[in-house]
Computed example of a mutant assay.
Amino acid sequence: MFEQFAAEARATVAAALEETTLRGDRRIGTEHLLLGVLHDPGAVRALGTWSGNFPNRRGPPQCASEH
């Protein structure tokens, strides 16, 4: 079913399935997919770099028209 996915994507889905099974869940959810992504050290580094682009905010986000 996942043959058309890139090797990294297949590995992420396989890790997500493993996380789902370990937790006794019946369905793969977004939380399992995120845990699957975190199995890849390269993805973890990329997420760390990406998250640094967001300002440190306190409180709810504002609409662009409120600035």
Rank of each mutant, 00 (worst) to 15 (best):
M1C: 09
L38F: 08
A16K: 09
E3Y: 05
E18C: 03
G48F: 06
A43I: 04
I28W: 02
S65M: 10
H32L: 03
C63E: 15
A7F: 14
R26T: 07
F2H: 12
G59Y: 06
D25W: 00
L35K: 09
M1P: 06
A43S: 09
A64Q: 08
E18R: 13
I28K: 06
S65R: 15
A46T: 05
D25I: 00
E18M: 08
A7H: 10
T49Q: 12
H39S: 05
T12C: 07
T12S: 06
A7D: 14
E3I: 09
N53R: 15
L17V: 11
L34K: 05
R57Y: 12
E19A: 13
R58W: 09
V37P: 00
P61W: 10
R57S: 13
F5S: 11
A11Y: 05
H32A: 02
R23G: 03
A11M: 07
D25Q: 10
L17M: 07
F54C: 05
R58T: 15
A11S: 13
A16Q: 03
L38E: 07
V44R: 09
E8V: 10
L33G: 04
P41C: 06
A16S: 06
S65C: 14
N56M: 06
A9C: 07
R27G: 01
A14E: 08
G24N: 00
A64W: 09
H67V: 14
W50Q: 13
T20E: 00
V44N: 03
D25A: 05
H67Q: 15
A43W: 00
E8F: 06
P61L: 15
D40G: 00
G36I: 01
L22K: 12
R23Q: 09
P41G: 02
G48M: 04
W50G: 06
T30E: 06
F54D: 09
E3C: 07
F54N: 08
P60C: 11
E19S: 13
T49S: 10
E31D: 11
I28F: 01
E19P: 01
A15G: 01
I28R: 01
A7T: 12
S51Q: 10
P61C: 14
R26Y: 02
G24H: 01
